[in-house]
Amino acid sequence: MSATTTASTAGTRAPRAETERARNENRLGRRLVAPAVIVMLLVTAFPILRALWLSFYSYSLTAPDDREFIGLSNYVTALTDSLFWRDIGVTVVYMLVTVAFELVIGFAFALVMHRVVFARGLIRTSILIPYGIITVVSGFAWQFAFTYQNGFVNSWLPFVPTDFNWFGDTLPAMIAIMVSEIWKTTPFMSLLLLAGLAQVSDDMVEAAKVDGATWWQRMYKVILPNMRAAIMVAVLFRALDAYRIFDNIFVMTAGAEGTESISFLTYRQSIEQFQLGMGSALAVLLFLSVLLVAFVIVKLFRVDLAQARGEG
């Protein structure tokens, strides 16, 4: 922070000029961030407040004039409904399984990329393609791959009958959805972990090696602890992203066979069923549940939020 340092040294000599300057800097700073803050809040804060307000009403798109204040009824209905809890459970499963797989595979990829000295451009390009590809496209690619009429998955996998219908039951359908999700997002995870890996000083690893530490010992005692912050930030972001899973479900099963996530339930209520009141209540509950998930992860893993915020 060169600017601040200069300013404060100057400040000891000329206190009046300094307050003036600090005030100007304060004003300028606020002016510069104002557009960003306004745009960010415009499309989020206002709608979520409106959702909060609408959630107290029984309000259908087909009968806007019959809007009726019903207090907390929508919340009571949702929270006592088994479908709501089932979808929460399904969503948590998506989140835990995908993040776990991404973490393991992503770390393996990061190790490979960290060590490799050849074909770096090729690897970088390849790994960025799943990251950049449209989620809907990934969903289609995997859906077609898993269908038994045209897909290749059944014929490549041992012990799977060639006419096995992956989308005929909850578990296989969820597996197909998670495969698409994991494929698409592992590269992101591996790049974040690669950055963390780059921060582990080689000297420390070498020193451990000289001391006779095995590969596993070096990994557990030196590398992983030093990457902790990077791993936690990656987990936090991916977990929250996975908790909001929507695109793949929409494309691959449209929520059939109990593969629906809480985001999909909210979407269906407000968009397909036209129930704006109940949809808003679910939107608020979704919002709160995301906060809860974030809170749990931050507390559980003691993620350094300052770093997540990029305050460095």
Partner: peptide, 14 residues
């Protein structure tokens, strides 16, 4: 049909 749970007017034709 194996795809009973996802069958539609088109899938049944083949």
């Amino acid at each position: 049909q194996s795809d009973l749970s996802v069958s539609n007017e088109g899938t049944a034709l083949a």
